[in-house]
Structure formats: C-alpha cells, structure tokens
Design a binder for these strands. Structure first.
Length: 271
DNA sequence: ACGAAGCCCTGCAAGC
DNA sequence: TGCTTGCAGGGCTTCG
C-alpha cells in the first residue's frame, strides 16, 4: 500500500542506481498489470541513458532521450535493486536491466500497479495531466482547498482523497491528517470553514513530510530483500486502531466506512 | 457536473 | 487440517 511517502522513498532509493546509467534491456515476464505493459515501446529505451528521475503524484517518472517510463506501484507494488543474475521470484513482473549488472526489479502481487511509456513529456500523459497540485507544494494551501470545496458536498475525507483536488493523500494519511486537525471525516467538504482548512492543510503537509522522513530511514537499503514499505513502522495515531484509546483524549477510536474505504477517527476530538 | 458504486487482483485472516 | 468466504485498497470507469 504505497502512499506518497513510500513512492517518494522508492524514487530516492532507485535514483543512485539509475541516474546516468544505461538501460540494457527491459524484461517483461508478465505484462498484465493495471494496464498492459507496452513491451514494444519499452524496447525503444534499450541503450538509453537515464537522464533524470522525478515524481508526480504517486507516479515515478524515469526520463531518457527516447522517452520516459511511467511507474505506479498500485497498492502492493514495490521495487528492489538486485544483481541481474538473481533468479526472479513470484510476482517479479518486470526488470529494468542496467549495464552496471544491476536490475530494478518490479514486484506486484495484486497487479494494481502499472508501467507505461511516454514518448514526450509524461506530465502530458492522460493519466497525469488532469491531476491536482502536489500536497507539499506552495500551490496547495488553505485558500486553494477552501475554494475547491465550496460546491462539494462529499465527505471531507473523500474530498482530500480526490486526485483532482490534491494528489498523494491516500486512505491512511487521510485519516491521520483529519485526526491531527480535529475534523470529523464524514463532514461535507463545503461545510468546513477556512480556518479549519488552514489546519487541515498544515496537517496533511506535516503527516506526509514526516512519513517521508521516516520512510527514508526504514527504506534506505534497496538491495535488501525485505524492502518493506516504511509506514508500518511509523506512528499512526488512528489508522487501524479501532477500539484503542485516542492518543489525545483516551476515548475509543471508531472505525466506519466512507466511500467504501475504512476510516478511523475519535468521536470526541474530531467534530 | 457531481457523487456513488463497480471493478481489477491476490494474500491473508476468519469462519466452518 | 483444509476448504470457503470476506476483506483490503488506488484510481479509473461506469452508472444514476
């Protein structure tokens, strides 16, 4: 379940191995991901040097002169750095083989992830071009969020998880951010005042940046076989804590379903 | 235009 | 112990 911090950490982890290195081959063992892997197009990248890497929302973008790779980890995807000779395991669907003898190995049991190709600017790709601002950018502020919310009657939790509003706020961090800002997840987005959106924006930024920090430490070594996402080890206050005492007031954390996703909150602290 | 629901997929946990 | 069932979730797609 990689959320934005895990994706950012993944990007940082693979960067040293990819940047300025040559792609020798891209081996696709199973093209049936969220969308079919375009094997033919990917072969255009053979022999290309990776000129830069970036991230947009939860997409990792790998740029070369001949085009870019667009990688999404879905909810069960992960990558590792391996010796290219290492025998692939179950669900190791794609290898980006490098001249260095190393490979970036993509594993995704549930195959909700994707690997796509873009011959021009990947930010113009149709999966990406309509997305809202990055949560950690200056563009994402209370003024913006308040304005966006005025004609939206959806629950605020769904609202902040809407990629057209803001990207990278997944189910876990949505619950956490709302807890930090004292806002009940079920409240309609258009019923929330601007001062409360100030708090919410600050909480989202805080939760995500802290997670990136801790992800950076727990995921430092991408050559380890158990490069598990880091958020398990970090301090979640309400997510998955149904029945536990609220860390602020001690009341029992509640679990409800909003928009077919489980949500956690404190009925006393969050109004 | 918006909002709600459906769908893809596998691993794991719970129930029998 | 071994089956079946249900649940989890990102985000696009479809339906109302």
């Amino acid at each position: 379940m990689p959320e934005l911090p895990e994706v950012e950490t993944t990007l940082r982890g693979i960067k040293p191995y990819l940047l300025n290195n040559t792609i020798q081959d891209i081996v696709v063992r199973n093209p049936s991901l969220r969308w079919p892997v375009p094997v033919e197009q990917l072969s255009l990248l053979k022999g290309c040097i990776v000129s830069s890497l970036s991230r947009r929302a939860k997409y990792v973008l790998i740029h070369t002169q001949n085009g870019s790779l667009i990688l999404h980890l879905g909810m069960s995807g992960s990558v590792r750095i391996v010796d290219s000779s290492l025998e692939p395991g179950k669900h190791d669907h794609v290898d980006i083989v490098l001249n260095s003898g190393k490979s970036i190995r993509f594993n995704d049991p549930r195959r909700f992830g994707c690997l796509l190709f873009s011959s021009s600017d990947p930010l113009k790709h149709q999966l990406i071009n309509h997305l809202g601002p990055e949560p950690l950018s200056d563009e994402f502020d209370a003024e913006y969020l308040y304005k966006q919310s005025r004609n939206r009657s959806v629950a605020v939790k769904n609202f902040i998880m809407d990629g057209k509003v803001v990207v990278g706020v997944g189910n876990i961090y949505a619950s956490e951010s709302l807890f930090l800002s004292g806002i009940r997840p079920t409240i309609a987005a258009n019923k929330i005042s601007k001062p409360r959106y100030e708090k919410l924006v600050a909480s989202i930024k805080q939760v995500l940046s802290k997670a990136i920090e801790s992800g950076g430490t727990s995921l430092r070594d991408f050559t380890q076989s158990d490069g598990k996402p880091g958020y398990f080890g970090q301090e979640l206050r309400v997510y998955g804590k149904e029945g536990d005492p609220c860390p602020r007031c001690g009341a029992k954390i509640k679990q409800i379903v909003i928009g077919q996703r489980s949500s956690f909150y404190c009925a006393k602290c969050q109004r």
